[in-house]
Design a protein around this nucleic acid. Structure first.
Lengths: 174, 174
DNA sequence: TATTGTTATACTCTATAACTATA
DNA sequence: TATAGTTATAGAGTATAACAATA
């Protein structure tokens, strides 16, 4: 592969996909397009989340995990689910706690452990954000018809089924 | 939207898509699957690039940009193409220069400006990496048949066509 | 004055590793 | 000895803003 010389026109702003050229394998073109679409959407979401709610994506993700577990999650469970190491979870939880969006709850049986839960305010705030978030997604995917979205969903399912599971090693027992 | 209570089983390692639940709009499920597939592939690439070549993705991308422009690119052109601000390009170029992969070439006409180019060693190194990179992609996308890949490519084209162009403002004239 | 590029600074996310406290 | 969580540190990428040199 040699990414060769492109046509002379220099685009004002490039994106991932403009790395594709005639001598590229079709899979590479497909990958660059996949990356390009996803990145554009993700950047949009990230930016809106920050502008409208002052929240980063990892923090939103952590809240989403908690929203699914009303009884709360331990730090190590969060670490596993978010696929990041423990120190990072400590930092994110500390941040959210300082904003009263989550709270720690000690465990009577094992005093090393505690559960992290959404506070009522956190739950309310998340509900608002999640509703907005979903509306953004619906809008961003609207170039595709329902039928096309369904097709895309199935194709990605096939792709995903063949991919290796992501590195779940952080904070796991060795 | 309320992300409701999931089934009791706690998965060992979750991924983005496990944020999807019954009451989610289909578009949201599609988005989470799209994000999940892309992230898995990207993380794999990033990790291999680092392990096998000691290179980060942004540096690889910068080299890819230069590979396409044998006459070199100015710092501001690189900044526009990579959609990051100037200071970052300075840092990445400095890194690559210290490894003799790229070089700066002063411009006789405008002494504020210079072109950044791949060195011969940089070009050779990039050729090797790009070949490997493409092989990884071909392999990672292999769960899909050629026909499916083609279908996916077209669907993403439709999606992409409807998305806004990414924020090309960094370092542009205001 | 405007433009090119650099420097300084700050922030977030990330990992590693040493540490404390419980078990 | 092993586990849960914290802290300290380091490194990458990002943005902003002030700056120098040149146009």
């Amino acid at each position: 592969m040699s990414m060769s010389i492109p046509s002379a026109c220099a685009p004002v702003a490039t994106d991932m996909e403009l790395r594709a050229h005639a001598d590229h394998h079709d899979s590479l073109r497909l990958w660059l397009r996949l990356l390009s679409c996803t990145t554009r959407i993700e950047d949009t979401i990230r930016q809106r989340l920050r502008e409208q709610f002052g929240l980063t994506l990892p923090r939103f993700d952590l809240m989403a995990q908690l929203e699914r577990e009303p009884q709360g999650l331990t730090m190590s469970a969060l670490s596993r689910r978010m696929l990041v190491t423990g120190g990072n979870v400590t930092a994110i939880v500390a941040q959210l706690e300082s904003e009263q969006l989550v709270q720690r709850q000690t465990d009577a049986e094992d005093r090393r452990v505690f559960k992290v839960r959404l506070t009522p305010a956190g739950r309310r705030a998340f509900a608002v954000m999640a509703r907005e978030h979903e509306a953004w997604i619906v809008d961003l995917l609207s170039p595709l018809s329902e039928r096309q979205q369904d097709q895309l969903y199935r194709l990605l399912g096939t792709l995903k089924g063949g991919l290796a599971t992501p590195h779940p090693q952080p904070q796991e027992t060795p």
